[in-house]
Design a protein around this nucleic acid. Structure first.
Lengths: 280, 280
DNA sequence: TTCAGTATTGAATAATTTATTCCGTATTGG
DNA sequence: CCAATACGGAATAAATTATTCAATACTGAA
C-alpha cells in the first residue's frame, strides 16, 4: 500500500522516463508480478538499467525489491476491499466460485450474530450431560444430521440417527430426561420432526432445534432453538448455503464439546481403535 | 495462505530434503523474503538445485514464484487477522469460531488453486453426459457422497449411493461406459473404494476421484482426479475442514452442471413435485 | 534376494535476470 | 559560452535462477 502511495507522491518530481515508469506501474500494478525488469523496460519504452535506477531512487534495493513491495500493496488493498470485482480476466468459473464463497462466508459469519452465545453454550451443555443423543433431520437436513452424528460419535457420545422418520420415532422411545434430541429442519415445519418434538416435550427430553432464522413451529417448541441464515435470492445456491451453515453450527457445537470434555484422551483412543481395525 | 497450506498438506509424502525445506519455510516464512535460493539451500543444508526442484514440484514456475506466493500468504494472513481481531473483549467462543471460519475460508479458497479449471469442467462434463452416476464414499466421506447424491438428484440425474461398500459394488454392476463413478476418500487408500476404482477401470466407466491433495492410489487411477486441501495442524479441526472442502467442491460441480443443462426447468418441476407431496 | 526401473540429489553448467560502469547528450546556472 | 551536473542507454559485470547429467538410493516385481 505504502509503496504505490510513495510512487504517487513523487510523481511531480520525476523526469519524463521516470514518470512513464511510475504511471505504468500505477496503472498496471497487477501485471508487474510476471514482469522482469527488461520486460517492464520494453513495455514502457526505456532501458533495463533505467528501470533499476528508478527502483533504487525510490529507496528500494533493486528491482525485485520494488516488485515485492508492489505485490504486497496489491494484496493488502484487495483483501481489505474484497468486493472489487476485477474486470476482464476472471473466467466464468472463477466468478461462480467467488460468488459462492462470498455468500457462504457471509452465511457462516452470520451464525454468531443470530445465535446468542448463551444458546450455543446451553446446547453444548445439554449434549454434554446427555447419556444418549438422537439427531433427526430428513431430506436435505438428513445430511446435516448424519454429519453431527459422526462428530458426536467421535467424542464417544452415544448418538442415534436414522433417515427413516418412523425408525427415528422408535429410537426416541429409548430416550429419557437425561438424554437429548436435536432436530434439524430448514423450514421447521416438517411433520415428522414436529411429532418427534411433541414426544420429546411430553417425555421431558431436552430438545434442541436447528432451523432457518425465522420463528417456526419447531424452534418455538425447542428448549434451545438454534438458527442458520437463509434467504439467498439465488434459488440454486440458497439450499447449499443453508445446509453448510447448519453443518458449520454443528461443527461449532462439536468444538465446544471438545473443549468441555477434555477429549484428547478419547480421540487418542479412537485413533488407536482405527489402527487396530486397519491391521485386522 | 493457500501456499503454506499446500505445503503443509504434502508434508507426509515428501522426501527427507523436501521435508526439511518445507519445515524451514513453514517455520520461517517471514525470512524467505530476503533469501535467495542459494541462501535457502545453505540454511537448510542442501543444494540450490534442490530448492528449485522443490518449488517446481509444488507447481510453481521456479524459486521467485514460490517466494512471491509465500509473501502473499503471509500478508493475507496478517491482514485478515488484523481485520478480524476485534479489540479487547472477544470471548473464547468468538475466538474459536473465528479460527474455524478463517481456516475454512482458506481451505475453500484453495480449491481453485489446487484444481485445474479444466479438471472441474471435465468432471462436470462427464457427469453431464452420464446416464447414471454412482457416488461412493465411506465413513466421513459418506456424508459428502450423500450430499452429492442429493445435489445430482435435484438436477434429475439418476444417482446411486449407499453407505454399504458391498452394495456399492453391486450398484456399480449396473453401470457402463456411458455412466460415471465418483469416489470420495480423504486418504485415497480405502480398500473398498480401490476395488470400485479397479472395477470401473476394467469396465471403462469414467472415473472421478475426490481426495486430499497428495498423490494417492485413488487419484492416480482416476480419469479426472479432484482434490481438497488437507493438513491443518489441529487434529480436531482438520477432518472438518477437509470434509467441508470436499462438499464445497461438489457444490461447485453442481453449479457447473446447473449452468450446463439449463436446469431451471427441472428445478421448477422439482419444486412442484414437492408441493404436491406436501399437500398429499 | 536380485534386478530393472524409477526417483532423488548435488555438482557443474547454462540461461536468465539484475546491477554497475561508462560514456554521450542534454540541461542549468554562472 | 562554458563548466558542472543530471539523465539515459549500451555494454558489461555480477548475481541469481534453471537445467543437465551422473551418482546414488529406493521401489516393486520376479
Amino acid at each position: 500500500m505504502v509503496c504505490l502511495l510513495k510512487i504517487r507522491g513523487m510523481l511531480d518530481q520525476m523526469s519524463v522516463i521516470e514518470r512513464k515508469l511510475a504511471d505504468f506501474i500505477l496503472d498496471n500494478a497487477h501485471l508487474l508480478r510476471d514482469y522482469s525488469s527488461q520486460q517492464l523496460a520494453d513495455a514502457v519504452g526505456t532501458s533495463q538499467s533505467s528501470v533499476v535506477k528508478f527502483c533504487q531512487k525510490l529507496g528500494y534495493k533493486g528491482y525485485p525489491d520494488l516488485k515485492l513491495a508492489v505485490s504486497e500493496a496489491i494484496i493488502t488493498a484487495s483483501t481489505l476491499q474484497r468486493d472489487s470485482n476485477e474486470p476482464g480476466n476472471a473466467t466464468n468459473l472463477q466468478q461462480l466460485v467467488e460468488q459462492l464463497q462470498f455468500s457462504l462466508h457471509n452465511h457462516l459469519r452470520g451464525i454468531l450474530e443470530i445465535n446468542e452465545e448463551k444458546a450455543l453454550h446451553d446446547a453444548a451443555a445439554l449434549l454434554q450431560r446427555a447419556d444418549r443423543v438422537l439427531v433427526a433431520g430428513f431430506g436435505k437436513s438428513g445430511i446435516v444430521a448424519h454429519d453431527m452424528q459422526f462428530r458426536l460419535l467421535q467424542l464417544g457420545k452415544l448418538t442415534l440417527a436414522h433417515s427413516d422418520p418412523a425408525l427415528s420415532l422408535q429410537l426416541a422411545g429409548t430416550l429419557g430426561p437425561q438424554s437429548a434430541v436435536l432436530l434439524i429442519s430448514e423450514s421447521g415445519q416438517n411433520a415428522d420432526l414436529l411429532k418427534l418434538a411433541r414426544y420429546a416435550k411430553q417425555q421431558q427430553i431436552p430438545l434442541l432445534s436447528l432451523t432457518s432464522y425465522k420463528s417456526n413451529a419447531l424452534s418455538l417448541t425447542a428448549d434451545v432453538p438454534l438458527f442458520a441464515l437463509s434467504g439467498d435470492e439465488n434459488v440454486r445456491i440458497n439450499p447449499i448455503l443453508v445446509q453448510m451453515a447448519q453443518q458449520h453450527l454443528c461443527h461449532i457445537l462439536y468444538l465446544l464439546l471438545c473443549q468441555q470434555q477434555n477429549s484428547d484422551h478419547q480421540l487418542e483412543e479412537n485413533v488407536k481403535l482405527l489402527q487396530v481395525l486397519k491391521q485386522a
